[in-house]
Design a protein around this nucleic acid. Sequence first.
DNA 1: ATCCCATGCAA
DNA 2: TATTGCATGGGAT
Length: 874
Amino acid sequence: MMSKIVLIDGHSILNRAFFGLPDLTNAEGLHTNAIYGFLNIMFKILEEEKPEYLTVAFDVHAPTFRHKMFEAYKGTRKPMAEELRQQVPLMKEVLHAMGIRTIEQEGLEADDLLGTLSKRCERMGMEVVIISGDRDLLQLATDHVEIRIPKTKRTGTEIENYYAVDVKEKYQVTPTEFIDVKALMGDTSDNIPGVPGVGEKTATKIIVEYGSIENAYKHASELKPPRASKNLVEYWDQAQMSKVLAAIDVDADFAYELEEAKLGNLYTEEAYVYFQRLQFKNLLNRFDVQSENSIEDAFVIVVGKEEIQKIFAEAEKAQTVGAVLYKDTRNVLPLFAGNAEIGGIGISFGKEKVYCIPAGNGYSMEELLEALVHVAKHAGRFVVFDLKSSLPYLKGLEGAAEEKCFDSIVAAYLLNPLKNDYGFEDVAQEHLGLMIDPKTELEKMVCYEAYAAFASSEVLEEKLKKEEMWKLFTEIEMPLVFTLFHMEQNGVRVEAEELKSYGEQLGGKIVQLEKEIYELAGEEFNINSPKQLGVVLFEHLSLPNGKKTKTGYSTAADVLDKLAPDYPIVAKILEYRQLAKLKSTYADGLAVFIHEDDHRIHGKFNQTVTATGRISSTEPNLQNIPARVELGRLIRKVFVPEAGYVFVDADYSQIELRVLAHCSGDAALIEAYREAKDIHRITASQVFHTPFDEVTDLQRRNAKAVNFGIVYGISSFGLSQDLSITRKEAAEYIDRYFETYPGIKKFLDDAVAHAKEQGYVVTLFGRRRPVPELSSSNFMQRQFGERVAMNSPIQGTAADIMKIAMIAVDKELRMRNMKSRLVLQVHDELLIETWKEEEEEVREILKEGMMHAADLSVPLEIDMHSGKNWYEAK
DNA sequence: ATCCCATGCAA
DNA sequence: TATTGCATGGGAT
């Protein structure tokens, strides 16, 4: 059997991968998508080809003989994107770590290296496979040299394959003639001139007939389009030069030992470290797991009652205990509140102490859980992944062992809040370098999770301390786990019947509006489809259209608002949209979450989702219940307290602006807050140099918009959109604002500067947010990064303060054994279902907890209302 | 089934 | 071409 070599066009494949895949970054903020894509393509090819040898060729950033010959060669090429450039040296390191030969040579392009190598190998009787994204390489195809061009599609990678015959079949010319075709037609991407007036069609026709440009030149007078005939003669020199430029050098002079390209074990320890660092989870599966995961040897499935007793006794004395509860589905799933059946527990308190204990071996599930809580109370530290989801089963843990709890997922979130998920496998991989095969059987997986819990807390603690977030973790985030758990358990009561009739009323109006819209349109269509709606409005009815989206006309509210006064149908559509939204998302959407037994919605409050530190709410989202428009706001009437209770609702008054005043130390803004009732009016008065009492409504509105803009990371464009003014006017407002409050300008500038230097911004309580966008090559991305750097410390600090307040309020209610309970948090607002006799006490607790959550240089004011439903309490 | 887009709701 | 989120229906794959 003939031996085979695979040759890869390094830059070309990196380039393909870079543009074919979405941007990926690892924890350090390195871009990794091109490397990831390259490796995927490479592994696929290696599996298919099973070659004996492999070499990857790269271009060198230096002039080649082609540049010397034609200065403008590749002159039109844009510089490589920064995100891609960064990946090139790393790519080479990764290849070297896998023992793969790379080659590059000054004065030669990768094409020439590939061409020369392919010829040399072919002469030795080898089979050659060249991988490139570039069709120019097709000239190298022979009966023994195959060119393979990967195409990245959504469905995966498809590869076009070309031996010499395939080139002929597809392009009608032989690989060698391909050079002549290119010499005639030129190549804009390489800036090869070719012959003017000759494109692909003509060039191919000429070469099919005459075989080469030289022969065509001899028969120049016969050439078909007279233009080609004339130009070939006139530009003969240029054509000849183009041919030399287009021809790959197959006889270049450079040193290369085939033996160095011999493939060995790619999955070296060194490569493993790189893959881990780059966070190529899927690719890590390729590594032989045995050597790394010798900890598996310590895994024990315990079934004897006495042994179990012994383990619990030993665990009690341990400094750190990692644990996991599992359901006996063939998966370790996050547990949820309620009646899920649990299969057993996992527990680990040392590298050699890792146990899976299924229920039913002398210990029922209840007894296991009880014993586990007992362990938690006595051990030094109790570590789990996603504590909140296990709390329903760990009765008695609260109070007794609360402070010993360590949630590794929460810790991992603080260390990098930008990730999408924080499964224990991810944390194990990132912080322990532990690779876990996702197909691992259940009991072994339980052991892995218990061990990872045990082993991770120390590492995470060290990292949190190093990044000065230990206090944030222990004093805010961990206590908050319990508060959020309480809120989820409490839920909020919703009147199902009322909600249903509200939905039905909407439904009636929607049907009516639908009819009217069809009549005005003269046709029936799906009003919910922006695509169909766009066609009806802007094509069939020829309404003047402003904006477009990628896929068609924009039918967004701000566009339709402008048309509504002139076109009754548009006004109807806006009304229809409003009602449809209320019905689908709120009336019908909320109804499915109401529990039949207690008439309450137990939504989830997520602690590890947002980039800034806010809480998020899902299933359903209880943080976006309508409030601004009356019809929508009515929904709040179905949120009610249980009999004997009232709602008390408290929200911070402009907490973000106050945070800004404090953090910036701006004297004028601080002073404004010390005296102020109406901050926007004061701002207007100061910015427009108008006495407080003479501020017009317009001035106040503008000042308010600027205040908001500042908090979001202002841009003149954004402000101009919001106020419907020109960018210039918006810019003037901003300038005047910064003149009035120079401290704010400095604070925002400093935030951006800090982010550029350190790569992250930080809140008053030490919470960090990385800002990788600031090192993007894309201008818009960088602009975005600047706004993020300005906004995150403000939004994040406000979130920190609210968390402190929530914990304080919840603790106080429980310490006093009160019936009243925290049910909702909406970023700057807390809703408490209050036992009527406790109303005054609750108001006091809220006031105290919220106003004194932080000691700022401006007062933290709140607005507070009571009511028999959420509508009235707001 | 699953994903993406446009849209719209909140602070 | 203003910050942070989540859910929806439509429509492509």
